[in-house]
Design a protein around this nucleic acid. Structure first.
Lengths: 125, 125
DNA sequence: ATTTATTTACGAATCTTTTCGTAGAATGTT
DNA sequence: AACATTCTACGAAAAGATTCGTAAATAAAT
């Protein structure tokens, strides 16, 4: 749980976060919509994730049901922290500037960011 | 060049970006200030990077001098894009909100971000 | 000139992650 | 019942990244 998930593990987590508790078959089918993955490959990854504590599973029926055991926000925080650390010398604003500079934030998104900044500044004007 | 640098490769690039063209010895010495790395390890990584096109090198003297062959901004863009894609479903604002939510942005940094947003808002329409 | 140090090149050991083949158990189908 | 399908478990192959040992060449030191 302390460690960060790998690429593949993150893919699985994203499925579990959005679809909720799922079987290997369900996760694998969804993954195969974007890229080709063997069933046992997905199974193996999810077994490893269970071992690492990223997911928990219900083994009461033959077909196990997996659930995310880590919070979406926690993992994303960790990923952002890591990128901030490794590439942006720990500076949040550098990362933010780089991200905004990509240019694919809509007016509404910019508005929401401005509101967040206001809140962070203390709520004045 | 098309691919993304690994962790270690990024470390080397950061050195070359900030210190400019450097020898393996210089890079390795700097890396060893934060963690222990063998000289030949750093050498090998930089050789691989040369092969991948991440760095170029001047072999005119026995001690080769390496220079970054990729732009700092380009790589950081790619890293941000990748995180945005893999973890935030391609949404810049989600990534930004998460980063700002970490709480380690100073008033001055927030100010600079606000100015960037103003520029982004004013630039179009 | 001989020895010592530094550097590159090469290859291999190690480690992590990803992938998949195979076997055996459980379930479903005919 | 016999056969086919689905699932888990296990192990190992394949691929990528990291680490380092060793040898050969060059340079520096004595």
């Amino acid at each position: 749980m302390s460690n960060k998930p790998t690429e593949s593990e993150l893919e699985v987590l994203k499925v579990l976060w959005t679809k909720g508790p799922s079987t290997v078959r369900e996760v694998n089918d969804l993954l195969n919509e974007s890229r080709e993955v063997g069933y046992t490959t997905t199974l193996k990854i999810m077994q490893i994730m269970a071992q690492k504590g990223f997911v928990s599973r219900d083994e009461s029926s033959r077909t196990h049901v997996y659930s995310a055991a880590v919070q979406e926000g926690d993992i994303k925080n960790a990923l952002v922290d890591r990128l901030m650390e490794t590439a942006f010398s720990g500076s949040a604003s550098q990362l933010v500037m780089q991200a905004l500079g990509r240019g694919n934030a809509s007016k509404e998104e910019l508005q929401r960011i401005k509101e967040l900044i206001k809140r962070l500044e203390g709520g004045e004007s």
